[in-house]
């Protein structure tokens, strides 16, 4: 872990991290892009989750909602992670100083595990339930869990300036 902390310190002191941190326009623009990337990644994913949970757009086949939105959600996550990494390079030491950023990463890890459970455990059997308006319990649980975990990621991210 101290290796990671050293890396964060190096990143913070690097010309790139320093320039981004001190830039008047680029930094807010990266933050703004991070937020807008979230609309595609976490936002569209939340809509898929609501469909999996069986509470929204029930008359559209799950398979179709999943497959048609997947490329946009992945593209959104690419934007979110790239801009997030840029923000980390500018703020690394400050982010590691408090507990909230670690909590945020932990929620991302849990959301990632839930995603793998869905993709590897549930999605391969999608043909059995893809045309039901309300999916089976396991799928609904995966949907609600994803919704809760990604909301927790957004909440903890927004709390960084308040709780450190």
């Amino acid at each position: 872990m101290s290796g990671f902390y050293d890396f964060a310190q190096w990143l913070y002191d690097s010309p790139f991290g320093t320039a981004l941190r001190e830039s008047q326009y680029v930094f807010p623009l990266v933050e703004g892009t991070h937020l807008l990337g979230l609309a595609f990644s976490v936002g569209l994913l939340a809509l898929v989750d609501l469909r999996l949970a069986g509470v929204w757009l029930r008359d559209a086949p799950v398979q179709q909602v999943l497959s048609q939105l997947r490329p946009f959600i992945f593209a959104g996550f690419v934007v979110t992670f790239v801009t997030g990494s840029l923000l980390f390079s500018a703020l690394s030491i400050k982010l590691l100083a408090g507990p909230v950023f670690a909590v945020k990463l932990f929620f991302i890890l849990l959301a990632g595990i839930n995603f793998l459970w869905f993709e590897l455990g549930l999605a391969p059997h999608a043909a059995e339930w893809a045309n039901r308006s309300i999916p089976p319990l396991k799928v609904r649980i995966a949907g609600w869990t994803s919704l809760a975990l990604w909301s927790a990621v957004v909440v903890s991210g927004r709390l960084i300036p308040y709780l450190g």
């Binding site: 595609f40 939340a46 809509l47 957004v154 927004r158 709390l159």
Partner: peptide, 20 residues
């Protein structure tokens, strides 16, 4: 801070719906 949380979650839901 709690107002800010409701604000960003509500706005993200709005943006996601608009995007869809």
């Amino acid at each position: 801070a709690s107002f800010q949380l409701v604000h960003i979650l509500g706005f993200l839901l709005l943006l996601a719906a608009v995007t869809l």
